[in-house]
Amino acid sequence: MRPTEARHEMERQLVFELPNDIRRIEDTVEFVVSRCMVCREVAHKLHLNFRVSLTEALSNAMIYGNRRDPAKRVRVEVYVRASSVTAQVSDEGPGFDPDEVPDPTVVGNRSRSHGRGLFLMRELMDEVRFNDSGNSVTLVLHLPETDAASDRAPA
């Protein structure tokens, strides 16, 4: 993983590619979260909501998108702003239709061992968007306005 990191006045950008190896997910998530610690007020949302959702997006990309093919890669783009954290995770697979994924919380589906990843992303993030082909997901977490952010806001 050789991330490129750019800082602009109001935004930090982090872009890198990962080999298709689920053993890399844990360290990758911790690395990204460490770069997103905007302030203590948002630490809790990053700790659970963002961490779990990014883990889901990476594992979906590696297992279902790239079908565990070690020759394929996963691209990660993260944008940290005062008001939001956005992560885009893209795989090299053919994509899928997110509307066809069954609801894991209905009684007949609860005892299944798979199928909760997309549901958790949608529950934990403020926005979850897919591209048309379904092989790239964008996760957006809105951050509560902080004193520092409101100081910069126009009057």
Binding site: H47, L48, R51, V52, T55, E56, S59, S111, R112, S113, H114, G115, R116, G117, F119, L120
Partner: peptide
């Protein structure tokens, strides 16, 4: 435990069964 993802939840379901 810090956090569990859907795969972790899934393995608990499968082990319980």
């Amino acid at each position: 435990t810090a956090y569990i993802d859907s795969s972790g939840l899934g393995v608990l379901v499968s082990l319980s069964k």
